[in-house]
């Protein structure tokens, strides 16, 4: 899936380490983000957030005048902006505190630039759906807003379950989504024994989107794990 529509989103980085701010800014700007704002303290962050209304905030947990968690509580009083925590604390001990407050993700230092970008894109994509809901596959186009598949001029409607299933896969385009995650997306939190129904849905979707449903090229089975949706670049 093309991420370029996300590059217009405004990002705000909060960290008290100027070198790190500069590096993360560089990484994000090189990736194509147009506006990357920075702040070095809780006070400054709240000020910038109120003034600039960023679309995503990346917060360090340790700040000179408070911690990221309390900053997030303050932010939540006036905005629902998605938040990613960046922390030097060990993930195993701190992660729950961040997610419990409603953080969208959590990256522990040290991190690879690629990892940071992936998480930023994932959170942005989850929060801000693409304006054009068209997904182009090999041999057909899916229009999620109308729940339709256009295969060689023929328009085939999608059922609600098929729509959810395809959307989940499209959001993680090119990546494996486990059967568990798919079942959860379709049937909620306690999806025991739904694998057979899932298989049936996948079979029906293949009939709608694949040129040759017995030899799928878009909706691929990953044996023992789940499924993957390949889109056309």
């Amino acid at each position: 899936m093309d991420n370029s529509f996300l590059h217009r989103k405004k990002l705000l980085l909060v960290d008290d380490e100027p070198d790190l701010l500069k590096m993360v800014t560089d990484i994000l700007k090189d990736a194509g983000f147009e506006t990357v704002l920075t702040a070095a303290s809780v006070k400054e962050a709240v000020m910038v957030a109120k003034r600039e209304k960023p679309d995503l905030m990346i917060l360090d947990v340790m700040l000179p005048d408070g911690d990221g968690f309390s900053l997030m509580k303050q932010l939540r009083t006036f905005t629902d902006v998605p938040v990613i925590f960046l922390t030097a604390k060990d993930e195993a001990t701190d992660k729950l505190a961040g997610l419990g407050l409603g953080a969208d993700d959590y990256i522990s230092k040290p991190f690879m630039p690629q990892e940071l970008l992936l998480r930023v894109y994932a959170v942005l994509r989850r929060t801000y759906k693409e304006d054009s809901p068209l997904v182009v596959l090999d041999g057909c186009t899916i229009d999620f807003s109308r729940a339709e598949v256009n295969k060689g001029g023929e328009v085939i409607p999608l059922t609600a379950k098929e729509h959810t299933l395809l959307e989940t896969l499209a959001r993680n385009e090119g990546k494996i989504v486990t059967v568990d995650a798919l079942c959860e997306a379709l049937w909620g939190d306690n999806p025991f024994g739904y694998e057979n129904s899932l298989n049936a849905h996948v079979r029906r979707i293949r009939e709608k989107i694949e040129t040759d449903p017995s030899r799928p090229v878009s909706l691929i089975t990953i044996k023992g794990l789940g499924y993957k949706l390949n889109t056309r670049k």
């Binding site: 070198d19 993360v24 030097a88 991190f111 690879m112 690629q114």
Partner: peptide
């Protein structure tokens, strides 16, 4: 962790 982030980040870049 923080200095290492920068070493990793810049080396990667």
């Amino acid at each position: 962790r923080t200095p290492l982030s920068m070493i990793m980040g810049y080396a990667g870049r």
